[in-house]
Simulated assay, not measured.
Amino acid sequence: MMNNLCVAHRGFSGKAPENTLAAIRMAIAMPFVHWMELDVQLSKDSVPVVIHDFTLDRTTNGHGKVKNMDWEHIRRLDAGSWKGRSFRGERVPSLEEVLTLASGRLRLNIELKTVGNMYPGIEQKVTDLISSKGMRDDVILTSFDADVLKKIKEIDPRFRTGLIFDSRFGNPARRLHELECSLLSISFSRLNPRLAKVLTEQGVKIMAWTVNKGKEMRRLADMHSDIMICTNRPDIWGDTFLKV
């Protein structure tokens, strides 16, 4: 088994509708997938829901902002038909549903999708839910927002956190240290051998996203054996690293 672990991006999102239970089940069915990345926001009534966009329009048959809709409305939407007829009726899952399905099967990289004060209390809601499921050690919580990462550590410093970094400028190593983060989530095009070496020597894990071509996966593996490869196509990861 390669050290460059396969992370299913929003589940097996290359073939199933992203961030749905169908995509998660397809990822779980591949024995070499041990991690999954997903996105969490809050409904109007403060239920943590698993969806990437701030609006419902792209991945469901609904319209409007996630934060303006109650969970009962969101859960009735079709989140699968846009990907194909066979996924018609697939739903937007709650974080609780995803945690229940993934428990003992997948570790989770959960991005808190928020900007500024868009979702007051999201950190407490998410950490409480994860703790209630006994899954704190199976989760890394990530965000672009430094204040979110600080709040998580204030709530419970035992949670592992990761900074999402997508800039050509700045010093991610320094920011990670300041924020007590143990993971850097970074676009694969922004990652270079020097940064990979510096961070891994500091004990920081690196997750590179979103990598869907075998040649790019191999380039990252050559860069460092511990880089986690986040992909919409775990099947391509398998073809690249497991087939002789």
Rank of each mutant, 00 (worst) to 15 (best):
L77C: 04
R105Y: 04
S46R: 14
E90N: 00
D147L: 10
H52M: 01
I227Y: 11
A27V: 01
H34W: 02
R158M: 13
W209I: 14
A8V: 11
K113P: 08
S187Y: 12
H63K: 11
E97G: 10
A27H: 00
I24V: 13
K65V: 13
L242P: 02
M36T: 15
H34V: 06
G116P: 01
K150V: 12
M207H: 02
D222F: 01
A27C: 06
I206A: 05
D78F: 01
G134Q: 05
D226R: 09
V33P: 15
V40C: 12
E72S: 12
G214R: 05
V98S: 08
F241P: 12
R136P: 13
N109W: 01
A173D: 15
T161I: 12
L176G: 12
S103W: 00
S189E: 10
D235W: 00
F32P: 06
V126T: 12
I28V: 08
E96V: 04
M217N: 03
T240G: 14
A23T: 11
R219E: 15
A196S: 13
K151Q: 15
D156M: 04
I186L: 10
G14H: 06
F144Q: 03
M118F: 00
K153P: 07
H63S: 15
H224I: 02
K153M: 10
W71S: 07
E97D: 14
R58T: 13
V92Y: 03
A208P: 08
D53A: 12
D39R: 05
L38C: 08
F87L: 06
M223V: 11
K15L: 14
R158E: 09
V47E: 02
L191R: 07
G162I: 08
I229P: 04
F241T: 01
T60L: 14
K65N: 05
N61K: 03
K213E: 11
L99C: 01
I206L: 09
L179H: 14
T240Q: 14
W237M: 13
S86W: 01
H34R: 11
T127G: 05
R219D: 14
D57R: 06
S143W: 05
W237Q: 07
N232W: 00
A208E: 00
P234Y: 10
K44V: 06
P172L: 07
D138N: 11
M1S: 15
M207N: 05
K15S: 14
Q124M: 09
P31W: 03
L141C: 00
R91L: 12
A16N: 06
R168F: 05
G121T: 07
F54A: 08
M36P: 10
L195I: 06
F12Q: 09
R168I: 01
T59A: 15
L242C: 01
L112G: 02
G64W: 03
K151L: 15
S43R: 03
K125W: 07
V50L: 04
S43F: 08
D45W: 06
K113T: 04
G62W: 02
R10K: 03
S167Q: 11
N68Q: 15
I229F: 08
L99D: 04
M2T: 10
L191M: 12
N68I: 04
S131E: 10
T20Y: 04
S46N: 08
T240V: 09
G104L: 05
G134R: 07
V49K: 12
